[in-house]
Simulated scan of single mutants.
Amino acid sequence: MPSNLSGDSLDGGVEVKDVLALIPILDSMPITDPNRIAMFGWSRGSMMSLIAVTKTNRIKTLVLGATPVDLVLSAINRPSLEHDVFKRLIPGYEFDKLALLEERSAIYWPEKIPKDISILMLHGTNDERTSIVPVFKFADTMKSLGVNIELKEFPSGSHTLIESKVSVYRKVLSWFNEHL
């Protein structure tokens, strides 16, 4: 079990706080509907979005692309992540690698994600950076917990899904129209 989901040690802790600081700004703007807040994140941004929704009940829906839900598996599949990303971005990584990776991996704490949120996950089956395998397990777990989640696979799709950008845009707009 993760050691500190709410602490500043989280990868991107300051970034998550910065994003959540936008909510009071939205509340003060007459052109926004503060009851219809969505988050859209890709890759690391989708991991941050999952962390963010554990800290507020204000997010109504998430759209997540190429989501690294299991950084432990990512470290095994892509050893270069340890030096290029994890050591650089995760404070204290060299002292407690496993716990810190689990702390940032939603697959280890699905019960912390609000049950009343809707989630759209977009993932290419040929994603060279983030395996879709744990995403299947994560989506199944979320469904079993009663979360409204849809996993949209893009056959032969890459990490960015650039080759399917029109389909991605249409799916995202449709999702927001339906869930906001």
Rank of each mutant, 00 (worst) to 15 (best):
L71G: 00
F86W: 09
I149T: 02
L180W: 11
N4D: 14
G12I: 11
W42R: 09
V172R: 03
K60W: 05
S3C: 08
M29N: 13
E153Q: 12
A66L: 01
K143D: 02
I119H: 02
F86S: 10
R44G: 06
M1T: 12
R58T: 03
R170P: 02
R78D: 09
V53A: 00
V85H: 12
Y108W: 09
I59H: 05
W109T: 02
V135H: 01
Y169H: 06
D127A: 09
L62G: 01
I59F: 07
S43R: 09
V135C: 07
W42D: 00
L10V: 15
Y93P: 05
N126V: 01
P30T: 03
K55A: 13
T160N: 07
L120E: 05
S80R: 06
S6C: 12
E94W: 10
T32P: 07
N57E: 06
T125N: 07
N177Q: 13
R36E: 14
M121W: 02
S144N: 11
K97F: 03
K115S: 13
H159W: 08
K143V: 00
R36F: 00
T56W: 11
L5H: 08
L5G: 12
F176P: 03
P2L: 05
N126S: 15
M142H: 04
I51S: 06
I90Y: 01
A52F: 11
S174E: 15
F95P: 01
V72Y: 04
T125Y: 09
Y169P: 00
I59Q: 07
K112R: 15
M47C: 02
N148K: 14
A38T: 03
A21S: 15
G157P: 08
P155T: 06
I149N: 01
E153F: 02
K112M: 13
L161Y: 05
S28N: 15
I76F: 08
F138D: 00
E153M: 14
G12T: 13
D11A: 09
P114I: 10
K55F: 12
P34R: 14
P134F: 09
E103N: 15
K55P: 03
G92Q: 00
Y108C: 00
L151S: 02
P79L: 03
V19T: 07
F95Q: 12
